[in-house]
């Protein structure tokens, strides 16, 4: 226990997830609206029947179910905006960085040369809100390199850019 170096110096207490000289780009705040809408739909689907059931049966303890659901939904709703704000990406010369999460944070570095293909997808709701998702695939299934909530123009630009960079730096497996 004494041999391990305690590298915890308060002087360098910067956020390690903020790699220095990296210009992060945030995703569109419309993603938060879209996610809130989805959450709202879930709220109707979940709360409606449980409230109706509690009202019909009339037992006081049955109200606990919608109450718990409401608290969870409210918590999720409050988190959405912060989660979307925490979702950022950065293009560097040789790799793409993606960071996400508040409670469970992650930072992924995907080298362009490792990219196998790029997906751009946009569901009906996402199209309504004018956002698209760009996903990078490497040969590793563990690579979770998804950037949701990009404006379609930016998504297309990113896709082309990633594809051209990937080609330039392609390196087998």
């Amino acid at each position: 226990m004494t041999t391990s170096p305690e590298a915890h110096d308060p002087a360098i207490d910067a956020d390690p997830f903020d790699l220095h000289d990296v210009a992060w780009t945030a995703v569109s705040p419309r993603l938060a609206t879209a996610r809130l809408l989805v959450l709202g739909i879930w709220a109707v689907v979940l709360l409606g029947p449980t409230v109706a059931l509690a009202a019909v049966v009339g037992a006081a303890w049955l109200w606990a179910v919608p109450a718990v659901l409401a608290v969870l939904l409210l918590w999720a709703g409050l988190l959405v905006r912060r989660q979307v704000r925490a979702l950022r990406y950065a293009e560097r010369a040789d790799d793409l960085l993606i960071r996400r999460g508040i409670l469970l944070r992650s930072l992924v570095v995907v080298p362009y040369g490792r990219m196998q293909y790029v997906d751009v997808s946009s569901g009906p709701l996402a199209r309504r809100f004018g956002i698209a998702t760009v996903q990078l695939h490497t040969a590793a299934p563990g690579t979770d390199a998804t950037i949701p909530g990009l404006p379609p123009a930016e998504a297309a630009r990113l896709r082309d850019r990633l594809a051209s960079r990937g080609e330039a730096r392609l390196a087998g497996l």
């Binding site: 469970l104 992650s106 930072l107 995907v110």
Partner: peptide
């Protein structure tokens, strides 16, 4: 190395 990541709970 395919891609690398940092994770924090």
């Amino acid at each position: 190395t395919q891609s690398i990541a940092l994770e924090q709970g």
